[in-house]
Amino acid sequence: MPAPSSVTPASVTPDWTFEREHWRRGHFRVAGVDEAGRGAWAGPVTVAAVILPGLATEYPFRDSKQLSAAQREAYAAEVRRVAVAWAVEHAWPDEIDRLNILGATHAAAGRALARLRPAPQALVTDYLRLRTELPLTAPPRADALSYSVAAASLLAKTERDALMLELDAQHPGYGFAAHKGYGAPAHRAALERLGVSAAHRRSFAPIRRQLQEDASPRLLDEQD
């Protein structure tokens, strides 16, 4: 299967295509699963799971990347209002460093799915091939194509953004409130100026390099 494209036309709207395939097989509680923060250098990776009512209703939910912050917050509130069940879980940097980012994402997804009541009967994910006994559909760009996954993307993005605002207050100077822990030029400059914080993922290559650079002067001093 080809790698998912990073670009989705704004005109694309979600529908129930993937969910209907599961409904036809008698699996009516279909959970959409999506994550936020997988590529960031700092903060958690956040995974949401959402079961929407199986009524083929049209919703305003969209891939969170297509929306403004205000729209995301409004639609996330609507997701929580209409969902049959929803849950959000986080994998923090220590778990990411221990398991690697994919393993930590899978772990957080497993915790979110375990919290859903009623339990899901099938899953649709955004290209995330979870290890599960449940029927699973994992197409690329599902956050833009599936209502359930779009709903999950809204919860994951808004909850993670809120946590990054908290981390910004705890670790001032890094700009977490602005770039949300991703590798923006301002983030790289802050790392060079301030060093690595407790919120950073030490297993990620840019952070490993910064740790090595920070340690180099001390090693030279010890040799003198």
Results as ranks from 00 to 15, higher is better:
Val50Phe: 04
Ala108Phe: 03
Pro135Gly: 14
Leu116Ser: 06
Glu35Gly: 09
Arg20Tyr: 03
Ala69Arg: 05
Gln212Phe: 00
Arg208Tyr: 03
Arg62Asn: 01
His171Asp: 01
Asp15Asn: 15
Leu136Gln: 07
Leu55Asn: 15
Ala205Glu: 15
Val30Gly: 02
Pro172Met: 01
Arg62Asp: 03
Arg80Met: 12
Arg141Gln: 15
Ala150Ile: 06
Arg25Ile: 00
His106Gly: 02
Gly26Asp: 02
Asp224Arg: 09
Met164Leu: 01
Leu194Ala: 04
Ala31Tyr: 00
Ala42Ser: 12
Asp63Trp: 04
Leu194Val: 05
Ala74Val: 01
Leu163Trp: 13
Pro120Trp: 04
Gly26Met: 02
Gly181Asp: 02
Ser6Leu: 15
Ala76Lys: 01
Pro135Phe: 04
Leu163Met: 08
Ala151Gly: 11
Pro4Trp: 13
Leu154Ala: 08
Ser11Trp: 14
Met1Ala: 14
Ala119Ser: 13
Tyr147Leu: 07
Val196Asn: 11
Ala156Ser: 08
Ile51Asp: 10
Val88Pro: 11
Asp126Met: 12
Arg29Ile: 02
Ala56Gly: 14
Val12Trp: 11
His171Val: 05
Ala144Asn: 10
Ala178Tyr: 04
Phe18Leu: 15
Glu58Ala: 13
Gln66Met: 13
Val149Glu: 13
Thr13His: 13
Pro118His: 03
Leu167Val: 04
Ala162Ile: 02
Tyr59Trp: 15
Arg209Ser: 10
Ala122Ser: 08
Pro206Trp: 09
Leu130Trp: 06
Glu35Ile: 10
Asp143Asn: 09
Pro2His: 14
Arg72Trp: 02
Ala205Trp: 11
Thr8Gly: 00
Ala142Trp: 07
Lys65Trp: 06
Gly103Ala: 06
Gly181Val: 11
Ala151Asn: 08
Val124Glu: 01
Arg193Ser: 14
Ala178Asn: 08
Ala112Tyr: 05
Arg129Leu: 14
Met164Ala: 06
Asp15Ser: 14
Ala56Met: 08
Ala42Met: 01
